[in-house]
Amino acid sequence: MSGHLLDGKLDTSHVYTVDLSKPLVFQVGHLGDGYQKWVHQSIVCKESPRFFQSDCMESLTKTLWWVIPLVWMPVVFWSQVVALQRGLPLEKLFTTVPTGIFIWTFIEYFLHRFLFHVKTSSYWWNTVHYLLHGCHHKHPMDGYRLVFPPALTAVFSIIIYAVLSLFFSWRWSPSVFGGGLLGYIIYDVSHYFIHHGSPIDKLTRRIKRYHLNHHFKVQSYGFGITSPIWDWVFGTLPPPLKLQSSKVL
């Protein structure tokens, strides 16, 4: 493999080409510095690319949207029951649950901006990033990889609950966590609708355009999905752009 000198460094990223007809995950790492450009050149089709040669591994990467509320809504209710059993007054749920949802909007923004859009160039970091979020930007209409697999969500949930327990009391923390989990469910289902649903009014059309601008126009802006509030707070609101392609609307 050969390359050319760029600012005194050997640049080899241009010499590797991903074969889209073969499993992708263990190919993308070879792109090196060229990975970021490649992953944001979206392929707009509803076909799901092959990730792994193994059928078992491949199946673990696919999740239908309705699995998210099916798996996690019982946990939301269970969290409220635990909080009530610990002595949280019933009327406090009108405070704790919205608090959890609001906290989720920040977590959603933080993860999307600082983890899912981290710049990578090494083989394994490119591979990890592709599995976490890069695949979604490369194939934004892949309906099987629009929502988080429950196993991955469970890992994040354990961490988030541990952090929330540091800031909220023994009675409050389960309920706030359940509210945050409800916010996550709303996020994942809304995200699926944005990509595969048809807008029913001006609001849903605006939400859809807001997110699709992030995919196809300004990837460094518009990180909020369920709410643009943190984009406004942190100065990442996208400029007023209109998508030219009607196919994705």
Rank of each mutant, 00 (worst) to 15 (best):
I158C: 04
L70E: 03
I68N: 04
E58V: 06
W78T: 05
Q27M: 07
I107K: 04
S42G: 05
L70R: 11
Y187H: 12
D201R: 05
I101Y: 15
R171P: 00
I194M: 12
F106Y: 13
L241P: 00
F156N: 01
I103Q: 08
S190F: 11
H30F: 15
L84D: 05
F223T: 03
G34L: 03
V147L: 06
W66G: 02
P69T: 06
W65N: 12
L243V: 12
Y130H: 05
H14P: 00
P174H: 09
F177S: 02
D11C: 05
F223E: 01
F110E: 07
D19I: 09
H117V: 08
W230H: 10
H4P: 00
S165M: 13
S59H: 08
Y192L: 05
G222E: 13
H137W: 09
I103C: 03
V44G: 01
P239G: 05
H117I: 09
G134H: 08
G222N: 08
L181S: 07
C135E: 10
H30R: 15
T226F: 01
Y16Q: 02
K62N: 08
W72K: 06
V82C: 04
V128N: 00
V71G: 03
L84A: 05
V163L: 14
T120W: 05
Y35M: 09
K37C: 01
W170A: 05
L132W: 10
G179H: 07
V97C: 04
L10E: 10
P238Q: 13
F26Y: 14
W172K: 05
Y187L: 11
V189Y: 08
K119E: 14
L166A: 09
H214W: 11
G222W: 07
F156V: 06
F148H: 11
L64Q: 12
S48F: 10
L241G: 04
K242L: 09
K208A: 12
V147T: 09
F26I: 04
L241E: 11
L132F: 15
S169C: 01
I43T: 13
E108L: 07
R171F: 03
F148I: 14
Y123Q: 06
P140R: 06
H30S: 13
G34Y: 06
H117G: 12
W124K: 07
Q36M: 14
H4S: 09
S245A: 10
Y184S: 10
L111V: 14
S165H: 11
R50T: 13
C56S: 04
H4L: 07
E108N: 07
I101K: 03
F51G: 02
L60Y: 14
K9F: 12
K92G: 00
T96G: 02
H137M: 07
S227D: 06
V39Q: 08
I159T: 00
W104G: 03
I68A: 04
H4I: 14
H211P: 11
R206F: 13
H129Q: 14
V25R: 09
H133P: 04
L6G: 00
V218R: 14
V75I: 15
L20G: 00
H214S: 00
I200F: 13
Y210K: 08
S169E: 02
R205E: 08
P149L: 03
V44P: 00
S157T: 01
F51D: 11
Y144H: 09
H139F: 15
P228D: 04
S48G: 05
V71D: 02
P89T: 08
F216G: 04
P98E: 09
V39D: 07
Q36K: 11
L164E: 04
D188A: 09
V39C: 07
K119Y: 10
L164N: 02
